[in-house]
Simulated scan of single mutants.
Amino acid sequence: MNYESLLEEAQKELYVYEKPLNPSIKGLQGENVIWINRHLPTRAEKITILAEELGHYHTSCGDILDQSSIQNKKQELRARQWAYYKLFPLDKIIQAHREGIRNKYELANYIGVTEEFLEVALQRYQDKYGDAIEYKDVTICFNPLGIVEWFNF
């Protein structure tokens, strides 16, 4: 999924604007509107921010800017997890493997996300599933990252 297709999908449900924002703010969501900081340097950063703000739209309620609250931290985590699953589903790992992607840098470029987003998403999968999961016809290993395809007899 690229930024334009996610943007098009988002605009079916709410308004999305790219506006110059304070440099410390990458994106905001509220009242059926998402604002993305126009000054984000790359498409990869824009798509990760858009996905997270969409995650807030789908999973959060109220003002959660105060991250000293446990409830607000939980809502932030849910929104980020939504973004990880949206941009980087397990099927993408298998697809990338079959396309010959061999390292995390190539994988981040293949998916179109930042390396930081990829690292945190992989850590989330490892926290959820452990070091490996049998998924469809393969075993996905998260530490180290890799795919094991078994022979079908």
Rank of each mutant, 00 (worst) to 15 (best):
A108P: 03
V120Q: 07
L40E: 05
E76L: 06
F117Y: 08
Y17E: 15
Y17M: 12
L40M: 10
N103M: 12
Q123K: 14
G62I: 04
L50F: 07
F153W: 08
E115R: 13
A108Y: 04
R78S: 10
T42V: 07
E9A: 13
D63N: 15
S68P: 02
T114W: 05
S68A: 10
E134Q: 14
C141Y: 08
K12M: 11
E99D: 15
T48K: 09
E4W: 01
L28T: 11
A132D: 09
L65C: 10
D91N: 13
D127H: 05
Q126T: 03
L90S: 02
V148M: 10
E106R: 09
R43K: 13
D131P: 00
P41C: 02
Y105R: 15
L50V: 05
A121Q: 00
N72M: 08
Y17H: 13
W82M: 03
L145R: 03
I111P: 00
L50A: 05
G62S: 06
G100N: 09
E119D: 15
I25D: 07
N109V: 03
W150M: 08
A108M: 09
E115G: 13
Q81A: 03
G62W: 04
R80P: 01
W82H: 12
E18V: 06
V138I: 02
A96D: 06
V148A: 04
D127M: 04
E116C: 06
Y15K: 11
K74T: 09
